[in-house]
Structure formats: C-alpha cells, structure tokens
Simulated scan of single mutants.
Amino acid sequence: MHVNVEYWHWLVFGMILIMVEIFIPSFTIFWFGLGAILVSGLMLMAKGLSFSSQLFVWAIASCGFTFLWFKLKFPLFESSPAG
C-alpha cells in the first residue's frame, strides 16, 4: 500500500496538535506538533521523502524536542520562587 502524504498534511497535523495543547496543560503535545511542522518544512526541501522516513523524522524530532524541554527548561520552572 502506497501512502501519499503531502507537506501540508504534516503542517495541518502539527497545527492541530499545537491547538490541542490549549486543552491539555501538560505542555508535551506541543512538541509533537512542532515535530510535525519540522517534517513539513523538510518535505518542502526534500520532495521524495518516503512515508516511513517522514514518520521516523517526526518521532525523533518530537522525542528530541520533548527531551530538551524537560531536561533544559522544565527544571528552571521547578526551582522558581513562585513554584
């Protein structure tokens, strides 16, 4: 089965995930949306990217963004005097 996903599919998917973050205050779905938008931009530059490669890039980017958020920025919020 051949899946033909265009760049705008990833763009819309990313925007939907970022909008869903409004209703779920965990601030993790945002990074998955940002990963989808990154795949969208990558697809604009590399037209022949296979669907499995797209999914791989999305998974790695999303996990990377999430890891960086929890490792670098989140501890700053925990140690703030207001928290």
Score class of each variant (00 low, 15 high):
23 F>A: 10
51 F>N: 09
50 S>C: 09
74 F>E: 13
21 E>T: 02
48 G>E: 14
46 A>S: 14
35 G>N: 04
42 L>R: 05
14 G>Y: 06
31 W>S: 07
32 F>G: 02
20 V>C: 10
19 M>Q: 09
44 L>D: 10
15 M>Q: 03
71 K>C: 04
14 G>A: 01
10 W>V: 00
28 T>L: 11
64 G>L: 15
10 W>S: 04
74 F>D: 04
28 T>M: 10
11 L>I: 02
48 G>W: 07
57 V>F: 14
33 G>Q: 05
44 L>V: 08
59 A>N: 11
64 G>T: 15
11 L>M: 09
51 F>H: 12
14 G>H: 08
58 W>A: 04
70 F>V: 11
51 F>L: 12
31 W>L: 06
38 L>I: 13
28 T>N: 06
53 S>M: 14
30 F>E: 02
53 S>L: 14
32 F>A: 05
55 L>D: 13
67 F>N: 01
62 S>D: 08
59 A>V: 12
34 L>Y: 12
37 I>N: 01
34 L>C: 12
16 I>F: 08
40 S>M: 04
13 F>R: 00
15 M>F: 13
15 M>W: 12
79 S>G: 01
75 P>L: 00
71 K>G: 00
45 M>V: 15
57 V>E: 15
81 P>G: 01
61 A>R: 07
66 T>E: 14
72 L>S: 13
65 F>S: 02
11 L>Y: 05
39 V>L: 07
19 M>E: 02
60 I>R: 07
79 S>I: 10
52 S>T: 07
17 L>K: 06
51 F>S: 06
10 W>G: 03
40 S>H: 05
75 P>V: 07
19 M>F: 08
67 F>D: 00
64 G>K: 09
67 F>V: 09
73 K>L: 15
66 T>S: 14
35 G>L: 01
49 L>D: 07
64 G>Y: 12
28 T>C: 01
35 G>Y: 03
42 L>P: 01
43 M>N: 07
28 T>K: 03
38 L>K: 00
43 M>G: 00
12 V>S: 02
61 A>Y: 13
57 V>A: 14
60 I>D: 06
41 G>D: 10
62 S>A: 15
42 L>W: 15
43 M>P: 02
23 F>V: 14
17 L>E: 11
18 I>V: 12
23 F>P: 02
74 F>H: 09
20 V>K: 03
26 S>V: 10
14 G>K: 06
50 S>P: 08
29 I>T: 11
34 L>F: 12
11 L>S: 03
54 Q>C: 05
36 A>H: 04
82 A>G: 04
18 I>H: 04
53 S>F: 13
16 I>M: 08
16 I>Y: 07
24 I>C: 01
41 G>P: 09
43 M>E: 03
74 F>K: 05
37 I>G: 00
76 L>N: 08
47 K>N: 11
36 A>Q: 07
68 L>F: 12
40 S>P: 04
42 L>Y: 11
60 I>G: 04
56 F>Y: 13
60 I>T: 08
29 I>N: 02
42 L>M: 12
31 W>A: 06
78 E>G: 00
19 M>D: 00
40 S>T: 03
59 A>R: 11
11 L>C: 03
20 V>M: 11
72 L>T: 14
71 K>V: 07
45 M>E: 12
59 A>E: 11
61 A>P: 11
54 Q>E: 12
34 L>M: 14
47 K>R: 10
15 M>C: 12
56 F>G: 14
62 S>P: 06
46 A>Y: 15
33 G>V: 04
41 G>F: 09
64 G>M: 13
49 L>A: 11
